[in-house]
Design a protein around this nucleic acid. Structure first.
Length: 869
RNA sequence: GCCCGGGUGGUGAAAUUGGUAGACACAAGGGACUUAAAAUCCCUCGGCCGCAAGGUCAUGCGGGUUCGAUUCCCGCUCCGGGCACCA
């Protein structure tokens, strides 16, 4: 056995061993419980980043732990290979996105392999491969047949200079990122998937997911946004015709306080009024500028203009003026809202700004209504009662809503309605590097589906986009085709699918039997029913809503098409925190922002060690410290894992990632700490080397006090480690391993007594197994070298022994008036009275009770005694 | 702006989730070994008072519940994630 820890050598050898034994190939087996451990697949951006290392190490720790616990583990990997960055890289380097993507995949695959993850590479997939995206197209056509996919207009960011559609990310402060031109909203046709058909099920089924974090379920529930309210109409007459302006509200109890209505700029009523009102037309035009992002809409100044059109209040008949408001969304409800300034914050601000009447219709007893000071209760559903509301006066929220709903229903002007915030999923993208939408446009037959037997519609792989729109529009060999219906010359659809489509079902594709995959005769087969749902899904918290919701939707569609027999794709979800690093920047001469990598700056600290500033190492000038943020190329604060692996080895990288913070929390990067992880692994190796001759010592029937105490300590730490593994809290599992080594080293150093050899041998075998999911190469090698067995992968997971844990006395905390004043020792299993007596008799208690009698004694068995005087 | 998280020593964090706040590490300082360095090992390490024993304050800020609060409740503040075309 080597005396020195040589990570490069042992990691290469261990990986070669696992390869040659096909150790991680997953084969369905009815006799063993399955464990499908799924990590979010990476976008092949070029090289692995720390977020990937963190994500996949978590998955690998879970996989290896479950394998040793007897599960049949499937842990696959693949590539989310379509997307915008490939087009950007293509523009920059004149390389087709396909080549760039496949090259990146090859490099990143080798990086993943060097980290020693227990992956079944035979199931690898890439979403940009025609054999994969064929099934996106196939399922899209099934959705079209069922009416789940449909066509309507969508609003996009339009760059008027490049004549192209921009992603939200490409809009910076309202301007196109390349041209700097003011972005406009533009309506174009596109395909939508009716996720709203499943809104109720997607919401209700959150309750069937106890293995999901509460916060993710809350976010999804809020996103779906089910609200029960009233959809009602304001009647009006226009050009002699009777019309209705429909609105939706969850606060029907405030209807009597309506003093205006507001419609979206795209609302027909706005369009109509603008025909005879140039000022209004200009305002509507202004509303069309700016991005389509909700965050922008919500933070911009609320503006409006009256239309001069009046509608009738449906209950009082009073005239109510209609305004156009830039904050009203056409895509939500009917694109119109009622305005009740007294009981809605936004309406209040709007009314104040434009001098619209504010009429109180809700009162809370004991509270007075004043325009500056009723925000605490103005919308209180619990305590509020109707006032100034005619026959509804005195009614509470629910009674008022019921009465008003009934009255409006009787007039045919309204009914209770369940409304969702969730909108249908627009999947058309005017981009090249994505899955082609399998539609052909024929002058005679219109939009025609590509027949199944002609799938996949293959994307040409040699285009290089230039930023001025989709290059497919210039590819005659792609565009020109025969109409599948009439056979006449036709034109292929050039829009491609949202990349969220690709990632909405890849988890099921991994499960497909390799033979089915090879023949590619089906999207999924019965194997997906065996492995699915994934027992553990691991990925960044940034996917809490969109990706996870789309995947749940897609699964339900596949279920309803009879393709799979499960309702939900992911039984347990772990949302890892982001990996953050410090951000340093400086405004340059041109007014742009220049970023500096952390290694390019020196930090200035105050006496307490707090960061107070930073300077650039190169020029000594100050730079702005921007706090911490997710590692990204654009902010230049990423750390390359490759250097880490090359210097210290994969086990150190993995150990540090697990030790640095619990998986769900954000992880602030620090170079220090990596050294510490490396030091620990070296000590593990050195200890193995030191006790190699004792590793076979057999445990005697009884132990002397010293070795028994050491054994108890190890088994206690094991108990804690197992508990923490159950909580997915791997940082304390790593620290338990460190504590075990500290205890073993100390005993080994302090006593040469041969009688403790069996405890050292057993303790180290426990340590190696507990550590092996985190640092598998090291533990695999030591396990074999010390002769514990052939294969640590096949070793059973250790469980603490009750016989090793017993003790006769225990220590309790002694408190007087809730303050820690000392400790007492009592027999294990001592009853309350005995503990109380021992506590009262103790010196510390006597001192701090100051002669006063005990009013109350709180005894928490096994923990503490609190004497209240 | 809206929704969801988080804030504990110089730093990352722990506290079996209402019961000894700071385990385990990192950094720093001191020492041993060495011709020297690296590596390794040992000691100190939240603030204040004290020679010490010990006391006292302290888990972002302000309140509350409790014998007892990092943990539960209310308000604020700062940081992170998401907001539907980044993935």
């Amino acid at each position: 056995m080597q005396e020195k820890y040589l990570p490069t050598d042992i990691e290469r050898a261990a990986q070669a061993h696992w390869n040659s034994t096909k150790a991680f190939r997953a084969v369905a087996d009815a006799k063993r419980p399955k464990y499908y451990c799924l990590s979010m697949f990476p976008y092949p951006s070029g090289k692995l980043h720390m977020g990937h290392v963190r994500n996949y190490t978590i998955g690998d720790v879970l996989s290896r732990h479950h394998r040793m616990k007897g599960y049949n583990v499937l842990q696959p990997m693949g590539w989310d290979a379509f997307g915008l960055p490939a087009e950007n890289a293509a523009m920059q380097n004149q390389v087709p996105p396909a080549k760039w993507t496949w090259d990146n995949i090859a490099y990143m695959k080798q990086q993943l392999q060097s980290l020693g993850f227990a992956l079944d590479w035979e199931r690898e997939l890439a979403t940009c491969a025609p054999e994969y995206y064929k099934w996106n197209q196939w399922l899209f056509l099934r959705m079209l047949e069922k009416g789940i996919a449909y066509k309507k207009t969508q609003v996009v960011n339009w760059d008027p200079v490049d004549q192209t559609v921009l992603a939200n990310e490409q809009v910076i402060e309202g301007r196109g990122w390349r041209t700097g031109a003011l972005v406009e909203k533009r309506e174009i046709p596109g395909y939508y998937l009716a996720i709203t058909h499943y809104a109720d099920e997607l919401l209700a089924a959150l309750d069937t997911l106890p293995g999901w974090p509460e916060r993710v379920k809350t976010m999804q529930a809020n996103w779906i946004g089910k609200s029960t309210g009233l959809r009602f109409a304001f009647p009006y007459e226009l050009d002699g015709k009777a019309e209705k302006l429909w609105v939706f509200t969850t606060r029907a109890d405030t209807i009597m306080g309506v003093s205006f209505c507001a419609v979206a700029a795209e609302h027909p009523l706005a369009t109509h009024a603008a025909q005879s009102n140039p000022q209004l037309a200009a305002f509507i035009d202004e509303c069309k500028h700016g991005s389509v992002m909700e965050a922008d809409l919500a933070t911009m100044e609320k503006k409006g203009l009256p239309t001069g059109i009046f509608v009738d209040h449906p209950l009082t008949g009073a005239k109510v003026e209609v305004w156009v408001g830039n904050y009203v969304l056409m895509s939500y409800g009917d694109g119109a809202v009622m305005g009740v300034p007294a009981h809605d914050e936004r309406d209040f601000a709007f009314a104040r700004k434009y001098g619209i009447a504010i009429e109180q219709v809700i009162a809370v007893e004991g509270q007075s209504f004043a325009l500056d000071a009723w925000q605490e209760w103005y919308a209180d559903k619990q305590r509020g009662r109707c006032v100034n509301s005619g026959r509804y006066d005195g009614l509470g929220y629910e009674a008022a809503v019921d009465a008003i709903a009934a009255d409006l229903a009787a007039k045919g002007l309204g009914e209770k309605k369940v409304q969702f915030r969730l909108r249908d999923w627009g999947v058309s993208r005017q981009r090249y590097w994505g899955c082609p939408i399998p539609i052909v446009h024929c002058e005679e037959c219109g939009s025609v589906s590509v027949p199944d037997e002609q799938l996949p519609v293959v994307l040409p792989e040699d285009c290089v986009p230039d930023g001025s729109g989709n290059p497919l529009n210039k590819r005659a060999d792609f565009l020109d085709c025969a109409c599948p219906k009439c056979g006449k010359p036709a034109r292929r659809e050039t829009d491609t699918m949202d990349t969220f489509v690709d990632s909405s079902w890849y988890y099921a594709r991994y499960c497909v039997d390799p033979a089915t995959r090879a023949a590619n005769t089906a999207m999924v087969d019965a194997s997906s029913n065996h492995w699915m749902p994934a027992d553990q899904y691991i990925g960044g918290i940034e996917h809490a809503i969109l990706h996870l919701l789309y995947s749940r939707f897609w699964t339900k569609v596949m279920r309803d098409l009879g393709l799979v027999n499960y309702d939900e794709p992911f039984a347990n979800l772990l949302t890892q925190g982001m990996v953050l690093n410090h951000i340093f920047s400086r405004r340059n001469d041109k007014g742009g922002i220049e970023y500096f990598a952390p290694e390019e700056v020196d930090l200035r600290r105050d006496e307490d060690g707090h960061v107070v500033g930073a300077t650039c190492k190169a020029d000594g000038q100050p730079v702005d410290y921007g706090g911490v943020g997710t590692m990204s190329k654009s902010k230049r604060n990423g750390v390359d894992p490759q250097a880490l692996i090359e210097t210290y080895g994969a086990d150190t990288a993995r150990f540090f990632m697990m030790f640095a913070s619990p998986p769900e929390q954000t992880l602030e990067w620090s170079d220090s700490g990596v050294e510490g992880a490396y030091r620990f692994l070296k000590r593990v190796w050195a200890f193995g080397f030191a006790i190699q001759s004792q590793a076979a010592a057999a445990m005697p029937a009884t132990l002397a006090a010293g070795p028994a105490a050491l054994r108890r300590e190890i088994h206690l730490l094991l108990k804690q480690a197992n508990y923490d593994l159950g909580k997915l809290q791997f940082n304390t599992v790593a620290s338990a391993a460190m504590k075990m080594l500290n205890a073993l080293e100390k005993a080994h150093k302090e006593s040469a007594d041969a009688s403790q050899a069996p405890v050292l041998a057993e303790g180290f075998s426990i340590l190696l197994r507990v550590l092996s999911p985190i640092a598998p190469h090291l533990c695999h090698t030591l396990w074999t070298e010390l002769g514990y067995g052939a294969e640590i992968l096949a070793a059973p997971w250790p469980e603490p022994l009750e016989t090793a844990l017993v003790q006769d006395e225990q220590e309790l905390v002694l408190q007087v008036n809730g303050k820690h004043r000392g400790n007492i020792r009592v027999k294990v299993g001592a009853d309350r009275t005995a503990i109380e007596a021992a506590a009262l008799a103790s010196e510390a208690a006597q001192k701090f009770m100051e002669g006063k009698p005990a009013k109350k004694v709180v005894v928490v068995p096994g923990r503490l005694v609190n004497i209240v005087v």
